[in-house]
């Protein structure tokens, strides 16, 4: 494992790092972290088990086992990455392995919101651009400097206009991705909503 893990906090505007390509469509969260590793009451030790079964099958040839990728932090994936189970353990495992941002063709909805909630920006690019990057990484190191403010990434001989939902981009730039305190600021509005919803009243059995 690499240098000690530190959880992201506050505003996230720049991410610099080496890319690690992972080829395949519809890579589900069971593959990212198999269910047996969900038997835990904290996320601390998930990093070492990321892609456990895929890595065992490939006997050291999996991108997450290659020596040249051991300091990589920007994951490059194909389409529908993170589909299936809602387990936050999946992005937590990636993050604890060292992933700080993901660029892909597309992401599953729940995986995407889990990534936002823990501070991993996910960007999209068209299929051919992703494939180009993945091919490039086959024989060369690719270090990207990602600028969230301008949704832009550059390398020595490459520049990319990344796509990201504007609301997500703003959340990272403002630090609002760590949502609890923002949500709590509206405590009065939450109380009002509670009192105004029709079904709260007729579900008195609930409120015992």
């Amino acid at each position: 494992m690499k240098s000690e893990f530190t959880q992201p906090i506050g505003k996230i505007s720049n991410i610099n790092g080496q890319c690690i390509p992972l080829i395949g469509n519809d890579i589900d969260t069971d593959r990212i972290i198999p269910a047996r590793f969900l038997k835990c009451v904290n996320f601390d030790s998930l990093g070492e088990s990321v892609f456990e079964d895929d890595r065992k099958t490939l006997k050291g040839k999996h991108p997450f086992d290659l020596e040249e990728n051991k300091n990589a932090s920007i994951l490059i994936v194909n389409s529908n990455f993170g589909c299936g189970s809602s387990r936050e353990h999946a992005p937590q495992a990636l993050m604890r392995w060292g992933i700080k941002a993901i660029i892909g063709e597309s992401f599953a909805d729940i995986f995407y919101s889990n990534c936002i909630a823990i501070g991993i920006p996910c960007f999209t690019l068209p299929k051919n651009s992703i494939e180009e990057i993945q091919n490039y990484c086959d024989n060369k190191f690719l270090f990207l400097e990602i600028d969230l403010k301008n949704s832009f990434a550059k390398a020595k001989d490459l520049s990319l206009n990344l796509e990201i939902k504007d609301s997500s981009r703003k959340m990272f730039l403002s630090g609002e991705w760590d949502a609890t305190s923002t949500l709590l600021e509206n405590e009065n509005l939450i109380e009002n909503k509670f009192n105004e919803l029709p079904y709260i009243k007729f579900n008195s059995l609930f409120n015992s």
């Binding site: 353990h89 889990n114 909630a117 709590l184 509670f194």
Partner: peptide
């Protein structure tokens, strides 16, 4: 009805609300 991750479970416990698009 929709599935959420653990950080969102935390948010629902703490605020009974979620930030969503």
């Amino acid at each position: 009805a929709f599935g959420i991750g653990t950080s969102q479970v935390r948010d629902v416990l703490a605020t009974q609300t979620l930030a969503m698009n």
